[in-house]
């Protein structure tokens, strides 16, 4: 009973906030609705017993990706009139993408219903192994059967990261005031002050 209520609550909020993400006029509001959708999707995952995936969804998407997204959108100065002018021009392309996504969704659900995918039955009987935690199951599978794919994904991400650094790295710019923390800490009072008696008109060397 409580599970059913929770499911309808989460599902309704996911759909409503998903719709509002594309309907909201203000881009910052859009991002915030998207975050609400992510968060409630995590709630749905908890209900089907995939708590590890739910937590990862919140940590990675809500906690890191969406923050950066919000960060960028907040600083943009978006011209709404210009955005709406582009709507007619991009409409056919948008429809094409939507049709492809719909076809994929229908095919996926069809394959699932026909039992062609090894995801368990539609009534959810072959869901997680009872008595073993989610994390252990995923870890055991990821580091044995899918080890190559897992490492390859890591490498691809590493390459992307190096690429981003190379693109933004500017090399040796003009000299700037740079703090050498090691030198500051190593400084002692004895060497900080020196008593000298310079010749008149000579000045001191610092």
């Amino acid at each position: 009973m409580i599970q059913l209520l929770a499911f309808y609550l989460f599902a309704a909020i996911v759909i409503a906030s998903g719709a509002l993400t594309i309907l909201a006029r203000n881009p910052v509001h859009s991002v915030l609705w998207l975050i609400l959708a992510f968060f409630n999707a995590a709630g749905l995952m908890v209900i089907i017993g995939a708590e590890f995936i739910a937590m990862l969804l919140v940590i990675v998407y809500v906690g890191a990706v969406a923050v950066l997204f919000l960060f960028v959108v907040m600083m943009l100065d978006i011209d709404f009139a210009e955005l709406r002018a582009g709507f007619v021009k991009n409409f056919p392309l948008g429809i094409a993408v939507a049709v492809v996504l719909l076809a994929e969704l229908v095919l996926g659900i069809g394959a699932y219903r026909a039992g062609a995918l090894e995801l368990g039955t539609p009534d959810g009987t072959a869901a997680p192994i009872v008595g073993e935690s989610n994390i252990e199951n995923i870890g055991a599978l990821l580091y044995t059967e899918y080890l190559f794919l897992f490492e390859a994904a890591g490498l691809i991400l590493l390459v992307a990261m190096v690429g981003a650094i190379v693109l933004t790295h500017r090399g040796n710019r003009a000299p700037r005031a740079h703090q050498n923390i090691g030198r500051q800490i190593a400084r002692r009072p004895e060497e900080a002050t020196v008593n000298t008696r310079p010749e008149v008109g000579q000045g001191v060397q610092l």
């Binding site: 910052v28 915030l32 975050i35 995590a42 708590e51 590890f52 937590m55 990862l56 919140v58 940590i59 809500v62 906690g63 890191a64 923050v67 919000l70 960060f71 907040m74 935690s133 989610n134 994390i135």
Partner: peptide, 25 residues
């Protein structure tokens, strides 16, 4: 008493930034 307790705390504490960011904006 969930078996992903520590991850839950990490997830929730990463949400804390939204209050500040939204307030600032």
């Amino acid at each position: 008493d969930i078996n992903v307790g520590l991850l839950y705390i990490l997830a929730i504490s990463s949400l804390g930034v939204y209050g500040v960011v939204v307030a600032g904006w």
